[in-house]
């Protein structure tokens, strides 16, 4: 009797295990990955002079290291800057994340910081959200008059506190929120 019950339960369990289908689910299409930040600088005095610099991390977090261009522009000029954010994993179907950010402009804001602070200065927001608060996909900056090296940090905050002190003027200190992008470009003014 005991043996029969044991045998039956064993068989039932083995049958159950074997009968399971072992098939993987479909791969998950990542929808929120940002691979590329494209910074375009246009000489405000001579709009024909356009410079483009790219930060690209095609495989997302981990994996291969990102590639970062150096921002090499002539000294002493004022530039109109624009930022394009892309998901370029699939070259045939590039996703423009900038559109999503612009749709949710009230929940996003870009910040710019230069080290040393005088290498690039006079940052001015040129694009705004529906409430008239800065968004910053377009902005203006001024390059130092003498040949110099430094870095330019571009930060995108999600759900920042746009009404905190200084935030509307581009000061990141009180912005809070969550960082979606934080990229540092080396800068060489020639």
């Amino acid at each position: 009797m005991t043996k029969k019950i044991l045998l039956a339960s064993t068989l039932a369990a083995i049958l159950f295990m074997v009968s399971c289908k072992k098939e993987p689910a479909a791969p998950i299409n990542e929808s929120e990955l940002i691979t590329t930040l494209r910074l375009t600088l246009t000489d405000s005095a001579t709009p024909a002079n356009v410079y483009t610099f790219i930060f690209k991390d095609i495989d997302g977090e981990g994996g291969a290291n990102p590639t970062i261009d150096s921002v090499k522009v002539p000294v002493g000029k004022t530039y109109l800057a624009s930022l394009l954010i892309l998901d370029e994993r699939d070259a045939s179907a590039v996703d423009t994340i900038s559109n999503e950010i612009e749709e949710e402009s009230a929940d996003h804001q870009f910040f710019y910081q230069s080290t040393p602070t005088d290498v690039i200065s006079n940052f001015n927001y040129l694009s705004f959200d529906d409430n008239g608060k800065p968004l910053g996909t377009e902005f203006k900056l001024k390059a130092k008059a003498t040949t110099s090296n430094g870095t330019l940090r571009v930060t995108l905050r999600h759900e920042p506190n746009k009404s905190a002190a200084g935030v509307a003027d581009g000061d990141i200190t009180n912005a809070a929120g969550e960082t979606d992008i934080e990229v540092e470009f080396p800068v060489q003014l020639y």
Binding site: L6, T10, A13, I14, F16, M17, C20, A25, A26, P27, I28, N29, E30, S31, E32, G60
Partner: peptide, 19 residues
């Protein structure tokens, strides 16, 4: 005693995030 265990863990692909 004897103990059998069968486990299956599945990700729902709706997340849109690598699991």
């Amino acid at each position: 005693g004897i103990n059998f265990l069968a486990k299956h863990n599945a990700n729902n692909p709706e997340t849109g995030i690598r699991p």
